[in-house]
C-alpha cells in the first residue's frame, strides 16, 4: 500500500446558510502528522466534520480529494471505506449495540463478503489494542459510548482508529477534557499508528497534546482559513506567546468566523 494524499482546495463550508470555512487549502500526505490549531470559533471542528460528510454542513465551493477520488461525491460510509477516519469531538451513544459488535461490523464493512475477519483474529486484535489504551475488558461488551465518561469516549475513538487503520485520520479535539494520564494514553495510541503511510490531521486548541505527539506541520486557523503554517516549532511559539502576535502580524482584530481583517 502506497501512502495516500488528502488534498483540500479552496474549501468553503456553510452551516444553515452561514459560511464558516472560507477558502481553505491543505494537503496531508501519508506519513505526515499535521496539527491545525487556533482559538475557539475559527472553524477547526467544522473542517473536520465537513471532510467526513457531517449532515449539518454544506460544502458550497472547493474540492477534497483522497488520492484521485473525489471525496465530496461520496457518501459518509464510502469516505470511510476509501480510507478516511474522523475521531469525533462528541461521539454519539448508541444503546443496545456493543462496542465489539460495532467494531466488527465496521471492519467487515470494508471487507468483501466471505472475507470477514475471523472472530478469533478480531478478538485478539481488540484485546491487544484495548490493552494499549488501558481499557478494561468490559469495554468490549458495553454499549457503544453509552454512559462513557468524556475520557472513555476519547479512548474509544482512538481504539476505533487503531482497529480500523485508516489511511488518513482526522482527530477532532481528541485531547479536550482529558487529564494528563488519559492524554498520555491517547497520545501513545496515535503514536503507535505512526508509520510511513499513515497520515493524520490533529485539530486542537491546546498545544499540550503536541508535547506528546510531535507534528510535522502546524497550521493556524483564523476566520475560517489557514493563516499561518510552519513546523513543530510554531506550536511551541504559540504555547509561549499565544495567538496575538499572529493577529498583529496579519492585522486581524477578531479571529473568529464572521469577522474580516
Amino acid at each position: 500500500m502506497a501512502a495516500s494524499t488528502l488534498k483540500i482546495e479552496n474549501l468553503h463550508v456553510s452551516i444553515e446558510g452561514k459560511e464558516i470555512i472560507k477558502g481553505l487549502d491543505l494537503e496531508i500526505n501519508g506519513g505526515e502528522i499535521h496539527a491545525v490549531m487556533g482559538p475557539n470559533g475559527t472553524g477547526k471542528s467544522t473542517l473536520a466534520s465537513a471532510i467526513m460528510g457531517h449532515p449539518k454542513y454544506q460544502i458550497t465551493e472547493g474540492k477534497v480529494f483522497l488520492d484521485d477520488e473525489d471525496v465530496l461525491e461520496m457518501e459518509v460510509d464510502e469516505r470511510a471505506k476509501a480510507g478516511l477516519f474522523l475521531a469525533m469531538q462528541y461521539p454519539s451513544e448508541v444503546s443496545g449495540v456493543t462496542n465489539a459488535d460495532f467494531l466488527r461490523t465496521s471492519i467487515n464493512a470494508r471487507r468483501e463478503e466471505g472475507d470477514e475477519i475471523s472472530l478469533m483474529k478480531f478478538i485478539k486484535k481488540l484485546d491487544s489494542k484495548m490493552a494499549d489504551l488501558d481499557m478494561g475488558e468490559e469495554f468490549a461488551q458495553r454499549y457503544l459510548n453509552e454512559g462513557f465518561s468524556g475520557g472513555e469516549k476519547k479512548r474509544n475513538e482512538i481504539l476505533q482508529l487503531m482497529m480500523l487503520e485508516p489511511k488518513i485520520a482526522v482527530l477532532d479535539e481528541i485531547d479536550s477534557g482529558l487529564d494528563i494520564d488519559a492524554l498520555k494514553v491517547v497520545s501513545k495510541g496515535v503514536n503507535a499508528m505512526r508509520n510511513e503511510e499513515f497520515g493524520c490531521l490533529i485539530i486542537t486548541h491546546y498545544q499540550r497534546l503536541l508535547n506528546y505527539i510531535t507534528p510535522d506541520k502546524v497550521h493556524v486557523m483564523m476566520q475560517g482559513r489557514i493563516v499561518k503554517s510552519g513546523g513543530a516549532e510554531l506550536a511551541q511559539r504559540l504555547e509561549a506567546e499565544g495567538y496575538d502576535w499572529i493577529k498583529e502580524e496579519l492585522g486581524i482584530k477578531d479571529e473568529t468566523v464572521g469577522q474580516e481583517a
Binding site: A80, D101, F102
Partner: peptide, 20 residues
Amino acid sequence: FYLQSRGISRKEAERLIIHG
C-alpha cells in the same frame, strides 16, 4: 453519521440502531 463514518452503510447503521 457516527456509524457511517466507520464505513457502515446507511442500511446497516439503521439495522444496528433498531436492534440496539
